[in-house]
């Protein structure tokens, strides 16, 4: 007798809890070759709203944690992610149409990327900060501080390495993130949510919404309690005008990280296997400069 399949409908990850979409909607996720994989919740604008509230609530604690502590937590995320290596290889392989070996390379790269950003948490201030020479008896110190709540449109094609590459730099510097995952390949993001939930990341620091990017992105871009937005995920998303998103973001002077563009000016997804550099860490920090009287 054959065993019945356990049909899965994955949930969103908001405020440290796995919730169904407020809208009650879900959609079928297919593999690269068109087979049914699982159902995912289809997030709505109200899920985005709830996620922003959760991210705002988590910001104080996360931004206030020591950089060293954030590094430890990110390293722990890498550990737990590696512990689920086999599951991620299956999901990345099915979603992106990769062989088990190629998927293994991607998963390992994602782990390495997390470890790399974990190392940066307590070093970024030395690189981006400075002791400024001033003409007076003062110490003049500039240091990077987190921007706040960052909306992230995660890449559409690279569902794990790309996701980790956009989320890790945001939270490494003390921001909290509201992430709209890849619409067609959301399953690695769902599992990544389970990794986050079991690896000391406080609830609300990363919120993952599986949704149609074009539907929820305008709400995230226009939300006045979001301080910055990363538009990476517009590349390859259906029916989305990233210029309009940037205009909406200007309403409350959000920081905007534009997508990479090809020669023709169309957004493209970058090569995630390349050295990430500091661009993404630098994109979501504010420089605070303090004057302090010098003693003897």
């Amino acid at each position: 007798m054959s065993r019945l399949d356990v049909r899965k409908t994955y949930k969103l990850y908001i405020g440290g809890k796995f919730t169904r979409s407020e809208s009650g909607r879900s959609y079928a996720v297919q593999s690269a070759s068109g087979e049914f994989l699982a159902n995912a919740s289809m997030g709505s604008r109200k899920d985005v709203r709830d996620a922003v509230v959760a991210a705002r609530g988590a910001l104080g604690g996360w931004a206030g944690a020591t950089a060293y502590n954030r590094g430890q937590v990110l390293y722990r995320v890498a550990e737990v992610l590696e512990g689920r290596r086999a599951q991620f290889i299956d999901e990345v392989g099915a979603g992106e149409g990769l062989s088990a070996r190629a998927a293994g390379v991607v998963v390992d790269a994602a782990v390495d990327r997390l470890v790399w950003y974990a190392g940066w948490t307590d070093k970024i201030a030395q690189v981006l900060g400075n002791l400024n020479p001033v003409a007076g008896p003062f110490f003049n110190v500039s240091a990077p501080e987190p921007t706040g709540v960052v909306g992230v449109l995660a890449p559409q094609r690279s569902s794990l390495l790309g996701l980790v590459s956009v989320v890790a730099p945001v939270i490494a510097t003390g921001n909290t993130a509201v992430v709209v995952t890849s619409a067609a390949r959301p399953l690695p993001a769902v599992t990544f949510g389970e990794v986050l939930a079991t690896s000391d990341v406080p609830g609300g620091v990363v919120n993952l919404i599986t949704a149609q990017t074009a539907e929820v992105a305008p709400w995230l871009a226009a939300h006045r309690d979001v301080n910055a937005i990363d538009l990476t995920g517009v590349a390859g998303a259906d029916g989305i005008d990233w210029g309009a998103l940037e205009v909406a973001a200007a309403d409350n002077v959000k920081r905007v990280l534009r997508p990479a563009l090809d020669a023709g000016g169309a957004p493209v997804e970058p090569d995630w296997s390349a050295d990430p550099g500091l661009t993404r860490l630098r994109a979501f920090v504010e420089t605070k400069t303090v004057w302090h009287p010098k003693g003897l």
């Binding site: 985005v48 922003v52 709400w219 226009a222 939300h223 006045r224 309690d225 979001v226 309403d251």
Partner: peptide, 10 residues
């Protein structure tokens, strides 16, 4: 009135 979600800063 504005059509965009607001926040406690406002």
């Amino acid at each position: 009135t504005t059509g965009a979600y607001s926040g406690p800063d406002y």
